[in-house]
Amino acid sequence: MSLSPATRARVRARIALSHALTITPMGAVIAVRNRNLAASGATRRLWGPLAGVLRHRPLTPLEEIALPDRPDVRLTVVRSRLVQLLFWYGATGYEGAETHWWRVLCAQAGRILEVGANIGYYTVQGANAAPGTPYTTVEANPEAAAIVSRNVELNGLGNVQVVQAAVVGDGAPATMQLALPDQEQYAAPTGAYLSEGAEGINDRPAGTTVTVPTRPMSELVEGVDLLKLDIEGYEATVLESVRPWLLAQRPTIVIEVLKNVPRLRKLICELRGAGYEVRAIGDTSLHAITDEQLNADVPLPRFGSRDVILVPSERLHTLTPH
């Protein structure tokens, strides 16, 4: 499979726009960013479209950024869609509800495991909210994992261990191929996926792969009571490999649910039957997910997010309101 001509044209146009915008002084870029963030009503309609164009400008010569609405969170400037969006819109404007709930859960956790860190944005946010809590973060893409390490160091997060590996089930080969989607021309593409065994990613042509080491999930979960997974369709394989541990230890789980992931949906239903509550993260609140929604072959995230929280019923009270 390859990109359609229309998609290929959009990618080329985005790259050309990015190059053209480098003539815009960074001082002017920052001024537009700040005006847009402060604007409302009619003025937002003026500054918003301009920000929407300028956000494609590379952030060089900046070497690092502080989030405009959380200056205590800093990120290394790299060629990344996430860094661009966070510079322009901050934590509130980029997955604000997901970030809020991740910080809430991390602050209550005893040991945290994040699988699929990308550049480490959630790692930094979560470890910042729980500075004394052991936090293991895993990223398969070696280039992205190096960025995670830099962001951890930049924020002085001594409680974080960074592991560069693809998390897999027991018996998997020692290395696997990580596919880098053609549509994402970034240092750390958010949609990278394992070439074999992932579900729900058939619409992502990838002409480039990289060989990555693997790490069994069973080697990472000891003592963990909060787990986050965002591994592009490989979630079911990983969770199925530690099903007895899930049922015995009952960690809280934050997980991305794509369309066309029947194995993952089935596993979520099993966990609900074992006493888990399932909540979708909405823009302003959490929403209970019904059995009908779990069993339907449509995206679960109907409330502005693709992430759901699976929490043991005895700990449902820990999900305090916004």
Rank of each mutant, 00 (worst) to 15 (best):
R315F: 06
A188C: 11
P262L: 10
C269H: 10
T320G: 05
A198K: 05
R215F: 08
V32Y: 02
L86Y: 13
Y122T: 12
L54H: 10
Y193C: 04
R272N: 11
I112L: 04
R10C: 09
P213E: 09
P134W: 07
V162Q: 06
T208H: 13
L157M: 03
M176Y: 05
V78C: 15
V210C: 11
V115D: 00
Q161L: 13
D203E: 14
P49G: 09
Y234W: 11
T137M: 06
P68F: 01
R250A: 02
A206Q: 09
N202Q: 13
D297Y: 01
M26I: 15
G158M: 00
N202E: 15
P181Y: 04
E184M: 14
V167S: 04
W47D: 02
E64W: 01
H19N: 13
T136A: 12
W245K: 01
P244I: 05
I65S: 09
E222T: 14
T7D: 11
E256C: 11
V163P: 00
P216S: 09
T214R: 04
L82T: 15
I289H: 00
S241T: 04
E143G: 08
R150T: 08
A16H: 09
G156C: 06
G110W: 07
L220K: 04
T7N: 06
I231F: 00
E63F: 00
V124R: 00
E277W: 12
A127F: 03
L271V: 02
E63M: 02
V32N: 01
V83D: 03
L75N: 02
S285H: 14
E219P: 06
E256A: 11
A109Y: 07
A187D: 15
T208E: 14
A28H: 05
I119F: 06
A51W: 01
R150W: 03
V298M: 10
F87M: 07
A146K: 11
L157E: 05
K266W: 12
R250D: 00
A236C: 14
L3Q: 01
E196V: 14
P213R: 02
P205E: 02
Q177C: 09
T137D: 08
V278K: 01
V11A: 07
A127H: 08
V152F: 01
D170C: 08
G48Y: 00
P68C: 03
R12K: 12
G275W: 02
L246N: 01
V242F: 03
R14Q: 14
G96Q: 11
P299K: 04
L180K: 07
N260G: 05
L264C: 08
A174F: 08
R45L: 12
A236P: 10
L286F: 12
G126W: 02
Q125E: 14
R45H: 10
E314A: 14
P142R: 00
Y186G: 11
